[in-house]
């Protein structure tokens, strides 16, 4: 389906996109800083990626190739519907292959395939404020950001260790950007945290309900917060992928029957399929393939 010339490219009107682009540029100029923007009503409920969709709509051009992943997968409802949304409203080409995509909207993952210069990664963010759970007053958290008072962030990690013996925060793990702003990287697993820093791609974060945009320009320094005696660790399930045998990718645990049988598979479906196509085989593949 091609976009009708009667409708605006990529759903949003040009003034709105201009407003969002301004917020994005400001965010890129001040890495990690949450820029307020006038979030629009989108044809989907909050929590389904309204922030990410607005950012994607503002950065997409007719020449772009668009990919959407939801927890790493290209084929889940959320990913499929957002991809279809932009096919219809922008008429852009879409893909599931990470290396050829120019704009990737993601919910809760960073692709396994290293990103390259020229790519834009758009994150859907539910709660942009990393200090929110410890300090509910927005006026106070803003002041804490502006005065760099981040002791409270470590209180959260302290609480983790005191309760669990180690830092149990396993997703939305807070980071410090360019030694200045503490940022919530959206609920990506902490396994993905090391990919945030020094990344050749542009990373944009959109929170629709909270009306905030923030950004990491290419090659930004991003450090996961930790304690000297409890250093940050990017952890994952200690298994190889059951389908492609990869032992360096983030895995989902899948329950396969009602007797407790389970398998671990790559959460990044494109990466897993690519490896399988290249001939890699995991231990669970035989039976599954035949089914």
């Amino acid at each position: 389906m091609t976009p009708s010339s009667e409708y605006n490219f990529a759903y949003l009107d040009e003034q709105t996109k201009r407003m969002i682009r301004r917020a994005i540029l400001k965010g890129l100029a001040i890495p990690g800083y949450q820029v307020p923007f006038a979030s629009r009503e989108m044809p989907m409920p909050y929590g389904w990626g309204t922030g990410g969709v607005q950012v994607s709509a503002a950065v997409l051009t007719p020449d772009d190739r668009f990919k959407v992943i939801d927890q790493g997968a290209d084929d889940t409802t959320n990913a499929v519907s957002i991809r279809t949304f932009f096919e219809r409203t922008a008429g852009v080409a879409t893909t599931t292959a990470t290396p050829v995509a120019t704009v990737i909207q993601t919910r809760h993952r960073i692709p396994e395939e290293p990103l390259t210069e020229g790519q834009v990664l758009v994150y859907q963010v539910p709660i942009p404020e990393p200090l929110r759970f410890l300090e509910p007053r927005e006026s106070e958290t803003r002041k804490m950001h502006s005065l760099e008072e981040y002791g409270l962030m470590h209180v959260k990690l302290y609480e983790d260790i005191s309760r669990h013996g180690h830092i149990a925060t396993s997703y939305a793990y807070p980071v410090k950007v360019e030694a200045r702003y503490v940022m919530d990287p959206s609920p990506i697993p902490k396994f993905d945290n090391p990919k945030l820093g020094d990344c050749p791609a542009i990373q944009l974060f959109g929170a629709g309900r909270e009306q905030r945009i923030y950004a990491l320009p290419p090659y930004t320094q991003v450090v996961s917060l930790d304690f000297e005696d409890h250093p940050f660790e990017a952890s994952k399930a200690d298994h190889p992928c059951g389908l492609c045998g990869a032992d360096d990718s983030y895995l989902d645990e899948v329950i396969v029957d009602d007797t407790g049988g389970r398998m671990f598979v790559c959460s990044d479906t494109d990466y897993c399929e690519g490896r399988q196509a290249a001939g890699h085989r995991g231990k669970d593949l035989g039976g599954k393939d035949a089914a």
């Binding site: 008072e149 002791g151 409270l152 470590h154 209180v155 302290y158 260790i161 930790d226 304690f227 000297e228 005696d229 409890h230």
Partner: peptide, 12 residues
Amino acid sequence: GERLMAVGARHY
């Protein structure tokens, strides 16, 4: 511990 962390203590 909060005040300690607020002034830069980073050793749990």
